[in-house]
Amino acid sequence: MIEKLKVCMIGATAVGKTSLVARFVSSVFSERYATTIGVRIHTRRVALGERQVDLIIWDLSGEDEFQSVQPSYLRGASGYLVVIDGTRRETMDAAIALQERVRKTIADAPFVAALNKTDLATAWDLADEELAALHGRGWSLLPTSAKTGEGVEEAFDRLTTRMLARQADSWT
């Protein structure tokens, strides 16, 4: 039987959550920004070694002053991807605040932070010291670009590996 793992996408508005999911699930990218309302579920089967897993990806609407992430959507998640827009420093602060809230709902669930939009190198707005501070908090950071595909597979692979490792730990 193929295992199913629920993964939530969280982050500020317009950081590229939906684009990362579209790249990962359908290998497509659109320049057009279409805001997500509520939630949409996508599924992709991944193989890690000989093990196959169905990732049930919950693409949640972004967090901002107009809409907030409903904690109930996170319930039952095996892990989550925190997305930061590397060209907007304020989305890192939003990610930190969101992660704190998520931790209260699904305390020990592993997560990976995607530093998205690496294709916009000249507009990059995150400094090394800030990223080092996130490392210091135990965050696993990965540069990604939904546009070029850079780091996208790796981000989901890393998260899946961690989710499975956590499962294995809980069995022992």
Partner: peptide, 24 residues
């Protein structure tokens, strides 16, 4: 109703993004 809600949110967010980009 969904389209209307999305249109309003999209517009508000685009304005917010434009404002932030200007500040940056």
């Amino acid at each position: 109703l969904f389209r209307e809600q999305q249109r309003l949110l999209q517009r508000a967010r685009e304005l917010r993004l434009a404002h932030d980009a200007l500040l940056r």
